[in-house]
Structure formats: C-alpha cells, structure tokens
Design a protein around this nucleic acid. Structure first.
Lengths: 181, 181
DNA sequence: CCTAATTAGTCAACATGACTGACATAAATT
DNA sequence: AATTTATGTCAGTCATGTTGACTAATTAGG
C-alpha cells in the first residue's frame, strides 16, 4: 500500500465519502420543514408518506401503498387509521372488487398534502434553479441511479407519467473513466 | 382556475411532485444495503451515523457529534455506549482538556465503517458514472442546495476539505427562468 | 483559591414508527 | 363448497428519537 496509484484511489474515496455525508444532510434538511408542519398536526413522516401517495394517486389500494412504501400491513394500518379517524383520508369499497379499499384524500387531507408538497417542491425548484439548466435532468438521473435497479422501473414510470424526461444513461460507454467527482 | 397559465404551473408542479418521490426512493435505496449489513451486527442506522463520523473524523468530541447529527445527548449516549461496549469505538480523555472524550474507531470499528462506506461510495460512484461528466458537479450542487442555508457552510467546508469543488451557484441570475424540470 | 462554566454521563419517562406472528372477515375465484 | 385474496386487527417487541432533572470531573475567571 501507499503507492501513487493508491493515493489517487484514496482521493476519490475521500471525495465520495463527503458525498455520502452530503446525501445525509440533504435528506435531513429536505424533510425538515415538512416534519415541523406535521408536528403541529401531531403527525409524523409516516403519515406524510401515506397522505402524499393517497392524495396524488387517488383511489390507491392498501396493497399498492404497501408495495410503494415497502412496510408491513401493521405499520401502515396504524398511521392510516389515524388519518382516516381524523378526517384526512377516506376509504371506499372498490367498484369491481368490493374487498378493495380505495383510498382518497378528504378536503382537509388534500389541503395538508398541498401544503406539505409546496414546501418540498419549492425547495426542489430552488435547488434546480441553482444549477445549470442543461444539468438539471442529469441531477435527477443521478438520483434515479442511486435507487436499486429492482425498483427502478416503477419509479421511471411514475417520473415519465409526470412529464419528467430523463436522458438515457450513458453507463458502460464510459466505464473506464476514473474521475468520479 | 383552469387557464393556460395554470396549466403550465400545474405541469411543473406535477414534475416536481415526481421529484419529491424520487428523493424518497433514492434515499431509501441508498441506505438500504448498509442497513442490511448493520442488521447482521444488531446495529441500526443511528449506530452507522455515529461510527461513520467517528471513523472519518477521528478524535471527534461528543459535543461535535451532537452538533453534526443534531440529536440529543441522550439519544447519542445510547448508541455510543453500545458501540463502545461492543468494541467498535474507544474514548480517550482529551490531552489539553481532560473533560473531553475524544472518540476513535477500534480496528473492528474501522473495518465495519469501511465496509459500510464501500457500499455507499460504490453506489454513488456508479450513479455519477451514469451522468455526463460535466454535470457531476452540478448534481452535487443540487444536493447542497437542498440543505437549509444555516447548515450549508459547515457542509461546504467538509466537501472542500475532501477535495470536492463545486461551481459557484448561478442563483439570482436566472431568477426569471420558469422551466424548472 | 474558590466559584462559574463547560463537558460529559446518567436516570426516568415517553412517543413514534418500524417489526413478527397469529388470527378474523368478507368477497372473489375455481 | 373450498380456496384464495384483500384487508383488518390483536399482542408484543425493538430502535430511535424526545424532555427534564441531576451528577461528576475539569477548566477558567475573578
């Protein structure tokens, strides 16, 4: 060890380590504002996630929510029940299959979801505004590439549905390139 | 409502909403692999954070850790004690000020920290490799811009220390621009 | 030198949001 | 009619955060 070659690798590692920390700080701050609002309602981040997906994908089933959030039925049940009991979400039996509980936001639920969304989309819009316009899609591509490939398709799908178009990943073409940061 | 103008704004909002979700999925998957390794050691994400900062900033004091993580002394105490008791971190009284407890990783601690770091830096390097090289700095700039400005200086400092140079934010110059995604 | 402030550790109690496992019910499918 | 599916629920556990109060060791300042 300790060769010139290692020194190069070590410098990369240090940069990447700083990025690990950057991701931690970015996520914590990104959710911070919304967390503060939720606290006023005696809700937590778990409520936020459920309310978010129900509001922006109205008619979602419990099973869909479990698949998206990747938590257990019991974990979901607690927060969902609180959201229903306190009038932020309502459940309706499915038309075709009456075993299903289709979930919808109430007026209050939609209002809260919009308030929380405004905080987060505002922060994202501001952050995108700080980078070069032609790099904006790349920044999102980077986030997508951080996800596990098994989950990627569904996420790409929902991005595409929302009108977000991402460049095709350059991937293996530049495989030899070492300057990663 | 429902004018052409609103339609444009709504399209932006929908794209930004998809990005909110993308950030959620990206962070969850980003931490997922490390979480699985931690589980084998009966540790959680809280242990990871402490071990990470102690390993890569050896000699850190408890007060520094509290400032970085922004959690309470009591929350930190529990996980730190477990890491010390199980031989992953050791404490030494400060040379100049013997009230201080300088924190250092043990050999086992460093080994685990390196293993966890490899998973995360590997994922980041792969993701950076999927975007255009000239957009890589912008992607990091975007993450930095997601943080709360009050915390930004310290983060910029640690990025700079690690050799990550970010472009000066273009900010207000393009304030009028509306195409955010 | 003695008092103040600082750094850290600790006890107790509590809230949130995850988990496992077992079981119940209604509706649809075969 | 029997099975499968979608959902709900009970009971218990664990991890990680919180507040508030208090102790102990050490340093710094008047």
């Amino acid at each position: 060890m300790g060769t010139g070659h290692d020194a190069l690798i070590d410098a990369d590692l240090e940069r990447l380590t700083a990025v690990v920390e950057l991701i931690f700080f970015a996520y914590r701050d990104f959710t911070g504002e919304a967390d503060a609002v939720l606290k006023e309602f005696d809700f937590g981040r778990a409520h936020h996630r459920v309310l978010h997906f129900v509001t922006w994908r109205p008619g979602l089933r419990v099973a869909d929510l479990l698949e998206i959030l990747k938590i257990t039925k019991q974990s979901l049940a607690r927060v969902l029940k609180q959201l229903v009991d306190r009038g932020f979400i309502l459940q309706e039996a499915g038309e075709a299959d009456r075993r299903e509980r289709r979930l919808y936001p109430t007026v209050a639920g939609r209002k809260l979801a919009e308030q929380l969304r405004a905080l987060q989309t505002g922060r994202i819009a501001g952050a995108l505004g700080e980078i070069e316009p032609h790099a904006q899609a790349a920044a999102l591509q980077f986030l997508l590439a951080l996800t596990t490939s098994g989950n990627r398709c569904a996420i790409e799908q929902s991005l595409a549905n929302a009108g977000v178009s991402l460049p095709t990943p350059a991937k293996a073409l530049r495989r030899e390139q070492t300057k990663t940061v």
